[in-house]
Structures are given as structure tokens and as C-alpha cells.
């Protein structure tokens, strides 16, 4: 079968599935919000959710849901019919390739001379720029984390012990925007770094021509160390379990008791009921 044609068919059906999936999700979302806000509008003490209300709303979605399931199965068959063999590709993010070239630089233990000297100087300036961007990223994350920790440990935070949800929401209002900024800065920096790397790749290729890649070893490459570490960690894990069972708290209960108590009692808030 013509590969281009098969790809086209897959694309068309695939994108329709995207639309249907998002639509189905929106239907569920819309209905749950409808139940909630309609219930709330009825005033204090009114029934918000009930089995009947939920069933009525589910009944409106059901035909589309059934259609969706049938559609998904049909597309599965279509994809099998219009099979396209794809060869394994190579991960081609510029930063990744940049790192691979860097591995080769390690084997060049002398400074570059001759025509490679300016390239090497260029490489260093690129590295400098990348470093600066990484520092910016780290700095904004550090600010976000410090802001979070300061908020958490401020005596004025989390004072109203009887209204946990409000306290968490208050924290989210204050801390979340800072994290969003950090996230946005991180993404922008990543894009800039990626562009810088991409721009330098052809020169980097020339700079590292003929050099062998060298893998630097890390702590987990040392087999003896890893063996000892594993034994120590297993020992600590086992010890913790034994202590958890053997030790008792002020009420004479051990760790197992509380795990069991929590597991056999439904805490309705944990499962999102209320």
C-alpha cells in the first residue's frame, strides 16, 4: 500500500479521534460542573449530588460514549489495515547532540591550536552563555523554593487549623504564581539554550573531528561501591520495618496498627468524596 496514502488515512482518523476524545472529556466536565453549580444555586441545604441526578446526566452522555467506544475500536482496525512501517529514528534534540560532541572534547587533553583555536574560543563563549542561562534557571527555581519554604514556615501561615482547604488554597494563590514564573523562565531558557547549541553544531563538528567520545564515570559505575550501598540500604530498609513493628508510640500502638487503621477505614476526603 502507498505509504503516503496510508499515512494520510491514519492522520485523518487520528485527528477525528482527538476531537472526539476532547469532546467526550468536555461532556463529562460540563456535566459535573452543571450538577455542582445547579445544586449550589438552589441554596443552603439543597441536594447537590444524588444518584438520580448523576444517572440523568450520565444518560445524556451515554449514547455519545457508546459511539466513542465503537469509533475507537474502528480506528484501531483502520490503523491495523493501514499499517506504516517506521524505521527507528535518532534522538535529535540539539542539546543532546551538543552533549555528545562534548563527550569527544574530553579526549582532547591539549588546548586546540591552529585553525581549531578560534572554534575553541567560540565554544567557550557558547558554554559561557549556556552557563549564564542555567544560572538564571536555577536562580528562579531557588527563589520559588525559598518563597515556598518561607511561606510554609511563617508563623502566620496555616494558623486556622480547622479550615485546611482554605489554608491550602491560600498557599496555592501565593506560591503557585511564583512557581509558574519559574517554570516559564525555565522553558524560555531551555529554548534559548537549544538555539545556541543548534547554531554552534556545525562548528562543533569541525572542532571535534577525529576525536573519540569519552564516557566519564560516575559513582554508580563503581561496582564495589554499589554493592556496599545496596547492602546498607537493604539493611536500613529492613531495620526500619522491624523498628516500625517493634516500637510503640505513647498509646502503645506500633506502625502496623496505624497503617491498618487507615487502610480499612474509608476517609471520604482521601477519595474525593467530601
Amino acid at each position: 500500500m502507498d505509504k503516503v496514502f496510508a499515512l494520510k488515512i491514519r492522520k485523518i482518523f487520528g485527528w477525528i479521534t482527538v476531537g472526539l476524545t476532547v469532546f467526550l472529556g468536555a461532556l463529562f466536565l460540563g456535566n459535573v460542573l452543571d450538577i455542582y453549580f445547579t445544586g449550589k444555586a438552589k441554596g443552603v441545604g439543597a441536594v447537590v449530588y444524588s444518584r438520580e441526578i448523576a444517572s440523568q446526566h450520565l444518560a445524556t452522555i451515554l449514547p455519545f460514549f457508546i459511539f466513542y467506544v465503537v469509533w475507537v475500536i474502528a480506528v484501531l482496525v483502520i490503523y491495523t489495515k493501514f499499517k506504516v512501517d517506521t524505521k527507528p529514528s535518532v534522538y535529535s534534540e540539539p542539546v543532546y547532540i551538543f552533549k555528545r560532541y562534548q563527550k569527544r572534547l574530553i579526549s582532547a587533553n591539549a588546548l586546540f591550536e591552529g585553525d581549531r583555536e578560534p572554534l575553541f574560543a567560540q565554544y567557550n563563549s557558547v558554554l559561557d552563555k549556556i552557563k549564564k542561562l542555567k544560572i538564571i534557571t536555577l536562580a528562579v527555581w531557588a527563589v520559588a523554593i525559598i518563597a515556598f519554604l518561607v511561606y510554609m514556615f511563617l508563623p502566620s501561615s496555616f494558623t486556622d487549623k480547622n479550615h485546611a482547604t482554605e489554608e491550602v488554597l491560600r498557599m496555592a494563590y501565593i506560591v503557585l504564581p511564583i512557581f509558574m514564573v519559574a517554570f516559564a523562565v525555565n522553558i524560555v531558557c531551555n529554548y534559548v539554550i537549544s538555539n545556541i547549541c543548534n547554531g554552534f553544531l556545525p562548528s562543533f563538528k569541525d572542532l571535534t573531528k577525529g576525536l573519540k567520545p569519552v564516557n566519564t564515570s560516575r559513582f554508580y559505575d563503581n561496582k564495589k561501591f554499589i554493592l556496599i550501598l545496596r547492602i546498607v540500604i537493604i539493611f536500613i530498609g529492613a531495620l526500619f520495618i522491624i523498628l516500625g513493628i517493634a516500637l510503640k508510640d505513647n498509646d502503645g500502638k506500633n506502625g502496623v496498627f496505624y497503617v491498618l487503621q487507615k487502610a480499612i477505614n474509608i476517609c471520604t476526603e482521601c477519595i474525593g468524596l467530601g
Partner: peptide, 8 residues
């Protein structure tokens, strides 16, 4: 004891 048990 519970924290130890779970961490273990």
C-alpha cells in the same frame, strides 16, 4: 513507628 515502617 508508622513513619519508620512505611519508609522501610
Amino acid at each position: 513507628p508508622t513513619i519508620m515502617y512505611i519508609l522501610g
